[in-house]
Each structure stands twice: as structure tokens, then as C-alpha cells.
Design a protein around this nucleic acid. Structure first.
Lengths: 240, 240
DNA sequence: GTATGACCATTTGAATGATTATGGTCACAT
DNA sequence: ATGTGACCATAATCATTCAAATGGTCATAC
């Protein structure tokens, strides 16, 4: 009896979960097409095939819906980056980390919009969701990772850690934005841009390649980051 | 008789020249404070201590005045970069070129605004003065310089020239913009930022340092660029 | 208990027009 | 000849209005 009831609840929760995802899918498409400001809750409801009220059963308001979307996207992309790195022969290196993070940002409009604070797409979210909250976290993630690499002697230690983060960030931002500043005949396909960015970072910061043990630790740092984001998202989605 | 008349003309021209410069000085200050859109010709005239009509004795319209200002600024800054490079012990190297160009862009609001296409400051100038006209020229300047360096075996030739330009531009843009994306405690003073940018470019692109002869050639390329800009500015200012 | 969509209080932004500001000219003063 | 600033046509700006649109709620249907 209680089992059946419990099962029912779980099925119910799965259904709600998948509906939430459908709504987020709709929101994602509309966000990329029209931007935050011009995407209405009505549009999202129609696109997702639910009534408007249903959306408010999942999130408190429009802003939290989109915040959930960006967080979901961040987790999915981080997982893809992780898998892509493990598929590489050299495994989890700074080079591969940058290459695949850059590929993720260059391919995924939402990820890139968040990284570059694109207010054309994200509108007021830039000042609410992104303000220090999410971005400081990303930077501190870099910091933690580089800190570990430095301790292991994998990257230069003749420069303060914060300076290294500054340089890493500068190069990433630069390779993400440079296409806006170059005439057509200097453009490159995104795969090559990601590779060039990774090579620049590697040549500038790296001393030697990590061994198997180093990689295992790096992977764990990365895992922890993803897991923490996941539990945060679940908590966020569950209540209300 | 004819001599005296000639002299008088020259003195007259000098006076006009210096007045033109006073007007440009006024325009420069107002442009940085209020931006192109909110700076009126009246304001400039008042600030420069001349009548509005006088301005139109020097330039055809508002846009050409500001175009002249940006060109003047570009020349002055290029000369400063040149001098600063020659004052360095290693002379005209890619490293020093980037370091001092970056310093120039980081210190000088106008130079930086042009490089980053800051429409907050430059308004519609971004689409007129800057559209391909000036910027393509700058990129092609980089191209010519890197081409020379590559021929001399000073920078890598395992990568196409255009790709090298792409990378150079990406790193410059990145180090110019990164401060907007970093929290306070990751910020660096501009001298250090310029140095880091130069080091990144150098580590990524350079093979060996240029000898005395290489530097002489590089200097000549640079000279030619400045001279061409100067004659262009003079031509621009003289007629009308 | 869950989902819906009609409904409502606000907000948005297009339309209007009155007013000011601005770029550019030119008759006149020096 | 040179420089000026009043002057003008036009453009930008602002206040006001008001209908349409929007975020969020809740009585109702299932």
C-alpha cells in the first residue's frame, strides 16, 4: 500500500520533472531567439504546450525560471566538457580544459551569453542572476584549479595566482570576443579558435603536462564543482 | 617683399594650425566627458574660446572634426609607442611593441575607445569613421609586421599568418576588456596588465629575439605607418 | 490534488505634439 | 581677408496620453 503510494508519487515527480524540462526547453529556444525582455511567460507556456499557471507551479516568477534554465545549461555543458576531456588521449590537462570550455562557450549561445554578460540576450538577468553570484563562483573555480596546478608544479609559480587567473580570463574573453573585431577574411572556425585559445593559455602558463595522479585530482575538483551545482539546482527546483 | 609676404602666410598658417589644435583639445576633453552624441559644436566652440563659425573654417562638419581628432590622437600615441620602444634595452621587439601599444590603449581613453569600438563614447562614429576604414588598416598593419617577423624567422611559421593575427588581436582585446569581467580583488594595475599581455603574446608567438638589423627594419615599417597617417591628416586638414 | 485560462492590477511603449537643442550658414563687423 | 554669432531649418527631447501587453493570481473544471 505505502509502496504503491510511494511509487505513484515518484512517477508523479518524474512527470513534473520532465514537464519542467519541457518548459525550460521552450524558454531556452525563445530566449535565444528573442532575448529575455521580449520573451513573455505566455510565449513560453504556448511553446511548451502548458497553461501559464502551470509555469508558476514550478517557479516563483519569470526570473527564477530563467535562472533555473541557465543553471541547468551550465551543468549540462560542464558535464559535456568533462566527458570530452576524458575522451582525449592526454586527458584532463589545462590545455584540454580550455579547449573544451571554449568550444562549449563558442557553440552554446547561453553559456557564451553568460560568460560575456550579453545584456542583449539576458537583459536584466545580467544585473540580478549574474551579479557576483554566479560569476565570482566561476572565477573562484578557476582560482582553485590553478592553485592546485601550481602546487603540483604544473604551471608557473613565478607569478601570483591571482595574476594567473587574470591572464587566463583575459585570454578566454579575448578569444570569445575577437570575432567581433576582425574583418571577414581573418575569421576562423570555432574549433580552431578553441584550439588557438588553449594553445595560448598553455604556452603562457604551463610548465609540464600532468601525470595520471594529477589528472585524477583535477577530475575530482571538477566533479565536486558539478555536483555542488546539481544539488543547488535540485534544491532550487524542489521547494515551490 | 615676396619673402615677407611668404613669412606672413606661414605665421598665419601656424596660428591657424595651433587654433585647430586648441579646438581639437577642447573636443577631446568633451568627448571623453560626455561622449560624441552629447558633445555639441557650441560646447566645443565655447571650451576652445572661438566662435562656432570658426570651427567650420577648419572642418566641413562635426564628424570630420572628430575624425581629425582621432587621427591626431592615433599619430601622437604611435609616436609615443615608438619612442618608448626605442628607450627599452631590447629595442623594437614584438614584446615591447605589444607592451607599449597596450599601455597606450590602457592609458588613453580615445585610443582604447577606438580599439574596442566603444559606442558609448564614440556614438555613430563607430559606424562611419571606424567601419572598415580605420580598423582594417590597423589589422593590415599587424599583418604586415607579423609577415616580416615570420620571414625573419622571429615568430612561428607552423601557423598561417592570418591565424597569428587572429591570436594577437584576441589577446590584445582580451587584456583590454578583462577588467570588466573580473571582481575587484582580481584587478591589476595597467602597467602589469600591459606586461602580462606582452608576455602572453611573446610566449605564444615568438621564436627568438630580433637582432639589430631586424629591429632597424621593423622600425622602418613603423615609421612608414606613422608618416602615411601624418600626410593623410595634413591633407585632410589643409583643404577647407 | 492538479492544471487551466479568464481575469486583474501594472507596466509598457507607440503616438502625439509642444518645446528645446543642434548642426550648419551667412550677412556683417573687425 | 578673417572671424563672429544671430539666425534658420531640422532633429532630438520631453511630457502626456492611452490602448495593448504582461506578469502573476485564483476560482473553477477535471
Amino acid at each position: 500500500m505505502t509502496e504503491k503510494y510511494g511509487e505513484g508519487q515518484e512517477v508523479e515527480q518524474d512527470k513534473q520533472q520532465s514537464r519542467a524540462n519541457r518548459i525550460l526547453d521552450a524558454a531556452s529556444e525563445l530566449l535565444q531567439r528573442w532575448g529575455y525582455k521580449k520573451t513573455t511567460v505566455d510565449d513560453i507556456a504556448r511553446q511548451a504546450g502548458v497553461a501559464k499557471g502551470t509555469i508558476y507551479l514550478h517557479w516563483k516568477n519569470k526570473e527564477e525560471l530563467f535562472t533555473a534554465l541557465l543553471l541547468r545549461e551550465k551543468i549540462v555543458e560542464a558535464q559535456k566538457v568533462q566527458q570530452a576531456m576524458e575522451a582525449e588521449p592526454e586527458g584532463v590537462t589545462l590545455y584540454n580544459m580550455i579547449k573544451h570550455s571554449m568550444l562549449s562557450a563558442l557553440r552554446n549561445n547561453l553559456t557564451r551569453a553568460v560568460m560575456l554578460r550579453d545584456s542583449d540576450m539576458l537583459g536584466d538577468l545580467v544585473h540580478t542572476y549574474l551579479k557576483e553570484e554566479d560569476f565570482k563562483q566561476l572565477i573562484d573555480g578557476f582560482y582553485a584549479y590553478l592553485s592546485y596546478l601550481q602546487q603540483q608544479g604544473l604551471i608557473r609559480s613565478d607569478i601570483p595566482l591571482k595574476t594567473l587567473v587574470h591572464m587566463l580570463e583575459a585570454m578566454c574573453i579575448g578569444f570569445l570576443m575577437v570575432d567581433q573585431f576582425l574583418p571577414e577574411d581573418y575569421q576562423l572556425p570555432i574549433e580552431q579558435r578553441a584550439t588557438m585559445a588553449a594553445e595560448s593559455v598553455s604556452r603562457t602558463l604551463e610548465l609540464r603536462k600532468p601525470d595520471a595522479h594529477d589528472q585524477q585530482e583535477a577530475k575530482q575538483l571538477f566533479d565536486a564543482m558539478i555536483t555542488s551545482a546539481q544539488t543547488y539546482l535540485e534544491k532550487e527546483t524542489k521547494d515551490h
